[in-house]
């Protein structure tokens, strides 16, 4: 299968390019677009981006490994990004990590066998006033504790849609 943006994303890519003075500046937004369509960035996807932006593939690989939010492999349907920085750790983030490890039988940066969940420790999410915080894909789930997190996992597994961005659990 040849890797290619769908027509809609092709258009979005063209619009993105038009915003920048040089093509290289569009690297991060193009990778975001690619991650949205292809879910994670395989060497083939990175080569495609390199070709689109007329840059050496190594330049794209370098960026993808430097910026941690780009996924190099399938991280499952729900990526549980647990903040373990100062405030969250004071407010109990290590208990959250322990719970995920125990309930989902995965270690750090691992994915469950059914490809539903992954556990990724992350740095301060800029939401320390609602610590501890877990970012589930794009959404912040705030003021968590092990019980609330367990409920959240059950809901996610049952396909219950979370209520929009920033889900205060308080």
């Amino acid at each position: 299968m040849t890797i290619c943006f769908n027509p809609q994303n092709k258009l979005r890519f063209e619009n993105t390019l038009a915003k920048y003075e040089i093509k290289a500046s569009a690297l991060l937004p193009t990778l975001w677009l690619a991650q949205e369509q292809f879910e994670f960035l395989t060497p083939e996807v990175m080569d495609y981006v390199a070709q689109l932006l007329e840059m050496p593939p190594a330049h794209v690989y370098e960026a993808v490994t430097f910026y941690i939010m780009y996924k190099k492999r399938d991280m499952g349907k729900f990526c549980l990004q647990v903040c373990n920085n100062i405030t969250c750790s004071m407010m109990g983030s290590e208990d959250l990590i322990r719970l995920i490890k125990k309930e989902l039988h995965i270690g750090l940066n691992e994915v469950t066998e059914d490809k539903m969940f992954s556990l990724v420790p992350v740095q301060c999410l800029g939401s320390c006033d609602t610590a501890p915080v877990v970012q589930v894909n794009d959404d912040y789930c705030e003021n968590l504790n092990p019980e609330k997190l367990r409920e959240l996992i059950i809901k996610l597994r049952a396909g219950i849609v979370l209520e929009g961005p920033g889900i205060p659990c308080q």
Partner: peptide, 23 residues
Amino acid sequence: HRGAGAYICGEETGLISSLEGKK
């Protein structure tokens, strides 16, 4: 312009490098 997870891009010249499409 959306970053992609790197504290160092808050440093002003790191930010500039990032905006130029580099690490």
